[in-house]
Design a protein around this nucleic acid. Structure first.
Lengths: 207, 207
DNA sequence: CGACAACTAGACAGGTCTGTCTAGTTGCCC
DNA sequence: GGGCAACTAGACAGACCTGTCTAGTTGTCG
């Protein structure tokens, strides 16, 4: 019978358990606030295993964020694939976001949180975050390119901005309907971009 | 002749110098990343002065954030007061934001950064941040109330969301034009809200 | 002058952090 | 059995953290 000292029943390699523990703790409490000792205790793993596997806390942080990034990409791609209409595909990000903020464990965007922990200089967190941010913008731009709009880049930036804004509102105002609101605005922006590109004058501004 | 050991020539009370040093260091490098010793060195002040004046690091953090909050409120109010038109008043926040992100020392929203440092629980940072966030929403709602729109609350939430989104884009994508972009969207939203309230049907959605 | 308030310099306690290292255990393969 | 890789438990070093405390200095007011 193996020792049953572990905090919770765990399985998988030391690497998997460490990543799972890091994912939970770093996301819930912040990276700086969580020490190595707490991670290994949760993972039920010896300290040497962490350093043999990842080499440093910083590399564990990188692995944690990259794993989060992959998961987010997968969820978004899956949702995009569910739709035929390009408009709907562009709005899919807000549906994924609505699911995320509805979870009781939601604590904001892991990438924004991690990046904000050290506002200065080039950090691992900012590096990984920049990657997923570029990916999202690129993906939105591709989709916008399938529409007949004047500037796919502008439309992608607008939608990405709403996505971030909704994340912040959900996090700090506890506004769980923020993604829905953002989706509505995004929908309006897509319509407007389509109309303008079709030669319709920009809507007259009434005062 | 007084000792000239100070890092830079400083004047004002110990309290003022501490606040100035905290403002600079906490904002640039993050709150957790900056120790007390660094603050007092920058301020040219003894450690006992800090603890006599503020009592704890946490209270210094509170004072730092409250000071930032007051400054932001003042800037926004000043800009709002420059306009007659309510529409323009509502868009004034984006002009203040454009000024802020243009500064080379810009490192993102101090309140979002501070709040993100500890994602869990009730912290001083989240408390102060919640205050200024409520203030901004309330102010926008007041202004929206002066317009003839169906839901001033909804319009205020939309604009606040754009404000946050622009802040994030400026910070993490280094997109210094984000406030301008957000302003454009906000303008569109105000128009739309006005039209809808005037009995105009919501814009037909073309596919 | 004498008292007092506000300040400075810096040692110190007690805690936490990352990362290293020793020593021992387990399980698998030849 | 013998060897090896992966693991565990935990002491330890060295750094940094907040907050307290002692002791001395400066400036002002009566």
């Amino acid at each position: 019978m193996p020792p049953t000292k572990q905090v919770a029943k765990l399985e998988g390699s030391a690497r998997d358990r460490l990543l799972a523990a890091a994912d939970d703790l770093f996301y819930s409490h912040g990276i700086q606030a969580v020490g190595i000792d707490r991670v290994i205790e949760r993972a039920g793993v010896a300290k040497a295993s962490l350093y043999n596997t990842f080499g440093s806390k910083d590399e564990l942080v990188r692995a944690y964020l990259e794993q989060r990034g992959e998961r987010r990409k997968e969820r978004i791609e899956k949702r995009i694939a569910e739709y035929e209409d390009v408009r709907d595909k562009m709005l899919a990000v807000f549906e994924v976001q609505a699911d995320a903020v509805a979870a009781p464990s939601f604590r904001g965007c892991a990438f924004l949180n991690a990046s904000a922990e050290d506002p200065a200089g080039e950090t691992t967190a900012r590096e990984v975050s920049a990657g997923i941010r570029r990916w999202l913008h690129g993906r939105l731009q591709e989709l916008a390119g399938d529409l007949d709009v004047a500037s796919p880049d502008d439309l992608a930036k607008q939608i990405a901005m709403l996505y971030d804004g909704a994340s912040v509102a959900a996090t700090f105002d506890n506004d769980r309907k923020a993604p829905e609101r953002a989706k509505g605005i995004a929908s309006l922006l897509i319509d407007t971009a389509l109309e303008t590109a079709r030669g319709g004058a920009p809507r007259p501004r009434k005062r």
